[in-house]
């Protein structure tokens, strides 16, 4: 590395020299550069002004957006209590198993629910090959609590007579088709019921079929 390249590399470390976050060897190299280079000293002063301006604004921004301290803790406690209603795994093994189980559920549903295609259909089950079209009903986005396991998802689907049409995403979000029937007076009633389930973190109506 030439002297110029070396100096460029050291100049790139100035922000962390300024914040006192360089290791001893790097700090010594930067200080040697500052001792011999006026332009490096100018650069440091410019950075110092910039850092002061940024720090002041970030501090003000933080003051204007206070942290939801007690509310946040109360919410976390509710989430912990909610998650305690299901078995609490100590390792994060459920997500792949949930994804695999979800895929299995989709596959089973495709086999069980295969029906002739309807021209009035609104939604389709996702699959690699056969496509199941579903008529009417509601399309609901559901996020399950982090501790949820696939049997909880399956139990809710059975309860709703629902079908998993997409997901879970990395955040555990799924799209579920719920058929319109006499059980729920309307979409809101259905949504309220889903939201009340202990394994559901949130639910939102994405669409309503004909």
């Amino acid at each position: 590395m030439s002297h110029e390249q070396n100096d460029e590399a050291l100049l790139a470390l100035l922000p962390w020299y300024l914040s006192g976050q360089l290791e001893t060897a790097e700090k010594a190299q930067v200080e040697a550069l500052l001792a011999r280079s006026e332009s490096a000293r100018d650069e440091l002063e410019t950075l110092r002004s910039l850092a002061q301006a940024v720090r002041a604004e970030e501090a003000e921004h933080s003051r204007q957006h206070p942290v939801p301290s007690e509310l946040g803790w109360a919410r976390l406690q509710r989430s912990l209590a909610q998650s305690a209603t299901v078995a609490k795994p100590r390792r994060d093994w459920w997500r792949p198993s949930l994804a695999a189980a979800a895929a299995l559920i989709v596959a089973l549903q495709i086999g069980i629910l295969a029906r002739p295609t309807s021209l009035e259909s609104d939604w389709r089950l996702q699959s690699g090959g056969a496509v199941q079209q579903l008529t009417g009903g509601y399309r609901v986005q559901v996020r399950f609590v982090d501790h949820a396991q696939w049997q909880h998802v399956r139990a809710l689907l059975l309860d709703l007579d629902g079908v998993l049409v997409d997901g879970p995403s990395a955040l555990g979000v799924m799209q579920v088709y719920v058929p319109a029937n006499r059980r729920f007076a309307d979409a809101q009633a259905m949504l309220n019921y889903v939201q009340q389930q202990s394994v559901v973190q949130y639910a939102a109506l994405l669409g309503q079929g004909r």
């Binding site: 942290v67 939801p68 946040g72 989430s79 998650s83 100590r90 994060d92 982090d146």
Partner: peptide, 27 residues
Amino acid sequence: YQFSLRTLNNAADAADVLNLVMLEVWQ
């Protein structure tokens, strides 16, 4: 919360993330 707020520019979303992060810490 503040770091999340810098990414999301939305206080409600940052509060959601705070909850998710602390849940993940717990787990």
